[in-house]
Every structure is written in C-alpha cells, then in structure tokens.
Design a protein around this nucleic acid. Structure first.
Length: 419
RNA sequence: GUGGCUGUAGCUCAGUUGGCAGAGCACCGGGUUGUGGUCCCGGGUGUCGCGGGUUCAAAUCCCGUCAGUCACCCCA
C-alpha cells in the first residue's frame, strides 16, 4: 500500500503490543537506577551545536558526519542530541548542582538522533536509558554504575549480554601511549582512511573489524600495559568491587568507544543475537568533560543503554515481556441501556478498575467477542430487561459463569471479585 | 558514504516460459432477533513500493528512484 506520508528514513513507529513492551523495558532498565538513588532528569532534545562538538569531540564520527544540525529563526546553530550525557552535564553545570552534595546522581531516558545508514538495530532516532554519577572519582562508583546497567539486563531475563571492560587511562598516561601507538600504526600498511584515523584518533584503529587490519594489529601496544600508577590502581579497585557485586565481565583491552570524552573505566554490553550492531549499552568515566562545558574540574561516570536494541535482544533470546490485559472489565450495553453502561464504566474507572466498553453499536455477539479479545476477566452485560430489574449480568469470562447483580452494588461486587 | 539482496492484502508469504490478483492468519458479518473462546457459512479489505520503458498484453523483462535488509564503516 502507498500512503502519502511514511515515517522518515531510519525511523519507525512503535505500535501495540511492541509499544507496551517498550514501556516495560524502559521501566526495567531504569528501576535499578532508582534503587541506587539516581533521580530523574530531563533536558532538551536539542542543544547548542557547540556543546556536542566540544564534549563529544570533533574527531568522532558522531560529530563529524552524523549530527542533525540546523539554524533556528534566531540564527542559532542547534543540534538534535546525538547522545545523552552532554546535555545532562550541561544542565548540572548550568544549575550549579556540583556545589551541593556529591556525587550528583541522575537518570534519564529519551531519543537520540544520528544521521546514519539505517540497518537492523541502527536507527536515526533511538531511545536510551542512561545514568550519570558526577563529582566523585571513586572506583566503587564505577562499579555501582556498571552493576546498575547489568542489573537492568538481568531483570529483563537477558542471559546473553556480555560485559566488556577496559581502562582508557587518563591525561597522565594516555598521551604517551597515544604516541607509542601512533608510532606503531605508522609502520603498518593501511589504507588512506585508516591512516587518517591513526593521525586524528589512533585508539579507534584498535577496534577495526577488518581481518586484514586486525592481523596487523596483533602486536600493537595495549593501553592496559601502559597505564600510570593511579589508573592501574583505579582499574584494579573497580574490578575488585565488581567481584564483590557478583558482576561478571570480560577484559577487552582493545575496547574503544566512539565518544572522545571517556577516560579510565570504559565498558560496553554486547549481545550476540543482534548481528553486526551488537552493542546494547555502554559507558565509562569522563575526567575532563565537566570542565570542558564550563564546570569545575570534577570527574563523572555514566552509561547509556539502547532500548531499541534491548528489545531486539529480548526477541533474539525468545523472551516475551508480559503483555498485560488491556482492561479488567468489559461492558456490553444493549440498546437503551447504553447510558447506564457509560455511567457504570465511569464509576468503575474512578474506583480504580480498568474498564472498557463496546462502542459503535455492535451486536451482542460482536460485543462479546470484543470482550473476549480485551483480555478482561469479567464482562458486564446490561440490557433493557436487566435495567427494568435494576440489575446487570456479571460474567466470568474464564469460567463462563454468569450472575445477576444489583446495579447499585455492581462496583463493590466487582472490586471484591477482582481482589 | 560504498557494495550485495529484497519490496505482492493489516501480518507471513505463493504467483510457472509475460496472459483475469492468490493462500493462511488477522479482521468484519451471519449461523444463535440476550452471550465470547471451538465449529460452520459468507465477505478481499490491493496504486503488486513509486516513476518511466519494451510488448497486443507486465506482479513477472529493462532503466531510474524510494524504502527495508545484510556487510563495511560506526554505535545504542
């Protein structure tokens, strides 16, 4: 079928029942954060373009070629957020939250936008659930953040999400390592694009997937062997706390993430059932980020989990997130009893009973069919004959048992039966 | 951005060497003028992605385009 309008390329509509599953996934991924004391924060979906170029980094693909940037009528350059952390840090700095008790612990959810070639698991608009813990550089906090992400996946029943862990070093050890790596890469036979990347962002070359590149990288120096004393200690402590928390991980010395602000602890959750877009979440510590957007020189750590990809992972593992019945009670009015049926629906809803009703003057058979499809436990049939006697027919849809109940007691009777 | 594959009903898909647009599921109605699920009967709900070309004739062949998908790249 052809309609005049379709969802823009790389986007999709979330319809029932998948949309219900989406809400359940957002809840499951954010509940562990709330249990760990993170509070909800909401920031704009677009920000000053410079916020992203400065924080995410101009050398990243995200900034250099994937941003939805536009000028508004006031001549400002704005960008739809390509990731969640920068806006949250901006808000924290703008409102001086770091002057209060530290760490500042926040969680958020919402869409991010990137102009990419769409593919299964890769969309131009995708939703993340994320948390940020800002202002304290404590390895126990790194472990908390990682464990919080892991708990979200665990609560959903995912068993094939693997946690990859690495340390990217800091301003003390990374520059020297970077030079060593660059020197090593300079001696390899690489294509023009990769050579350029080696110049701008040499660490990125490490997680190139092409076999011919991988083979050459076999002897590359690894950051793990070049960490300064402080970073090594930090990383060791993080691993110690993770062990305490019962979180399993794999060492991934070549794990590098696409955003430039990460330092020290870096992690990614991968799921093998998703094809080439295997990352379902990731994050890390960011030492210089707060300062780069005008705040104090304080460190922070956070993650972003992909809701869309988590849903794909659930499907890949054959996990169905419970699809609750649309309502508990379904009312079937006949003829002139409609007004009383509408009234009863209102009474039931006010009493906290989820209630739907057959609209559109369907026949009794069709209305009962609708009652069945709704998943309701009870159907209430009200016809003119019942009205005369001041009653309604209350039918248990599972057993088929039906009793007449006085309309005056209908709400309390139903509440009793449902409890 | 580059390359491969695929677009037929709401969904999953069939459609032969070019010859009237199909099935299952879903949906609606009836069998039962006041009772759902099972069963029976009936109903196709369609711009064959879109545009052009070849042909007496195109879902089918050719070109273009859009979208999806897979891989690279990148990432959630």
């Amino acid at each position: 079928m052809t309609t005049p309008f379709t969802a823009p390329k790389g986007t999709y509509d979330l319809l029932p029942p998948a949309s219900e599953e989406f809400l359940a996934v957002v809840n499951a991924l954010s509940r562990p954060a709330e249990l760990a004391g993170y509070q909800y924060v909401q920031t704009p979906m677009f920000e000053d373009t410079a916020l992203f170029t400065r924080s995410v980094g101009e050398s990243t693909d995200v900034v250099s070629k994937e941003m939805y940037t536009f000028e508004d009528k006031g001549g400002r350059s704005l960008t739809l957020r390509p990731e969640g952390t920068a806006g949250v840090i901006r808000a924290v700095v703008e409102h001086n939250l770091l002057a209060g008790q530290l760490p500042v612990k926040l969680w958020y959810t919402g869409p991010n936008f990137r102009y990419e070639a769409p593919q299964s698991g890769r969309y131009r608009q995708h939703v993340q659930v994320g948390i940020e813990a800002i202002g304290v550089d404590d390895p126990a906090l790194d472990a908390e953040v990682i464990a919080t992400a892991a708990e979200g996946f665990r609560a959903l029943g995912l068993t094939q999400a693997r946690l990859l862990l690495n340390s990217l070093g800091d301003a003390t050890c990374r520059p020297a390592y970077r030079e060593r790596l660059q020197e090593f890469l300079g001696g390899l036979d690489l294509d023009a694009d990769t050579r350029r990347r080696a110049e701008i962002n040499p660490l990125r070359v490490l997680d190139d997937k092409r076999p011919e590149v991988r083979a050459q990288l076999a002897g590359a120096p690894l950051l793990a062997d070049n960490l300064c004393e402080a970073c090594r200690e930090h990383y060791d402590e993080v691993r110690g706390y993770l062990k305490e928390l019962g979180v399993q991980w794999e060492e991934a010395p070549r794990l590098v993430r696409g955003l430039d602000y990460y330092t020290k602890t870096t992690f990614e959750f991968q799921h093998d059932g998703l094809g080439s877009q295997s990352a379902v979440g990731g994050g890390g510590r960011y030492d210089g980020l707060v300062e780069s957007v005008g705040g104090p020189a304080l460190s922070g750590i956070g993650f972003g989990l992909g809701v869309d990809r988590t849903m794909l992972a659930l499907r890949a593992e054959g996990i169905a997130v419970a699809d609750p019945a649309r309502c508990q009670v379904f009312i079937v009015p006949l003829g002139a009893a409609k007004a009383r049926a509408v009234t009863l629906a209102g009474e039931l809803r006010r009493a906290g009973v989820s209630t739907d009703l057959a609209y559109g003057g369907r026949g009794l058979k069709g209305a009962m069919k609708a009652a069945d499809r709704s998943g309701a436990r009870y159907a209430v049939v009200i016809g003119e004959r019942d009205l005369e006697g001041g009653t309604a027919q209350l039918k248990d849809l599972a057993s088929g048992d039906q009793v007449a109940v006085p309309l005056t007691d209908a709400v309390s009777t139903i509440q009793e039966k449902l409890s």
